[in-house]
């Protein structure tokens, strides 16, 4: 029988530890496929962040540096400034990137660092057990917003992609989702483009992926995926918000 789907070479054999219905696994796979596509496995450095994806190094067959919580894009900056011909990417959750690491991501983007950032927005802190994230939706219950997120107290869910797209520095800024096959297909294409930007020395690329965390949302995998489609996408619209063809700052 012909093998139609095989594990990307950029992934190890280790089975994912993620909860059933978690989208981290899909995103890992899409990133690995992009690395395979450009034959980058042997020249890539992944920077893992602190969150459910901290075990990036167990799953990606590439060199990995584990960054302190929120600091992945600063760590990646240091690595890329030395290894200019290698590919450096970070993989960060919404607590990591949009709360504690806000300064680091904004300035890496603004400098147009030639790195690729994969930002997994699941509107919650997964690893620490379901606390409010800066991306938590209004009214969403979490362990630290037991009565629902109220903007009077907690502000609004933060739109990182829109914020970064407003900067001059970045070359590609996009938001995708993996809630249905058509969106997975688009996500695959855009994540590939993000790495292509870096391969061609075109500067900072950023892809936000709307993701489900069934465990901390208290939902079944099906319900959680439906929530991405029905609640998250209307607030966090999908699409390429910024793409530079000519890169002026590098």
């Amino acid at each position: 029988m012909k093998q139609v789907v095989k594990r990307p070479a950029s992934l190890t054999e280790k089975p994912f530890h993620f909860c059933p219905g978690c989208h981290h696994g899909i995103v890992h796979r899409l990133v690995a496929e992009a690395l395979d596509f450009f034959n980058l496995r042997e020249k890539t450095i992944g920077v893992a962040s602190v969150g459910c994806s901290v075990f990036l190094y167990d799953y990606f067959a590439v060199d990995v540096i584990e960054a302190p919580h929120g600091r992945a894009s600063a760590v990646a900056t240091g690595t890329k400034r030395v290894l200019k011909d290698q590919i450096v990417f970070t993989y960060q959750g919404d607590g990591d990137l949009a709360a504690i690491g806000t300064a680091e991501i904004i300035h890496a983007a603004n400098r147009g660092e030639n790195i690729t950032v994969i930002f997994v927005n699941n509107s919650i802190y997964g690893m620490t057990g379901g606390q409010m994230a800066p991306t938590t939706m209004l009214g969403q219950r979490s362990t630290t917003t037991p009565y629902g997120r109220d903007y009077h107290r907690d502000g609004y869910p933060i739109k990182m992609t829109e914020m970064l797209a407003a900067l001059e520095g970045p070359s590609l800024v996009a938001r995708v989702a993996v809630d249905k096959p058509a969106n997975v297909k688009k996500a695959r294409k855009i994540i590939r483009q993000a790495f292509q930007m870096q391969v061609e020395d075109k500067g900072f690329s950023f892809v936000e992926v709307l993701s489900a965390c069934p465990t901390n949302w208290g939902m079944t995998p099906q319900e959680a995926t439906k929530r991405v489609s029905d609640e998250m996408i209307p607030y966090f619209p999908l699409g390429v918000l910024k793409q530079k063809d000519v890169v002026d700052v590098l």
Binding site: I65, A67, R71, V75, T77, G78, T79
Partner: peptide, 8 residues
């Protein structure tokens, strides 16, 4: 943290 990334 940039230093960390470069030192590695």
């Amino acid at each position: 943290n940039m230093m960390l990334g470069a030192a590695a």
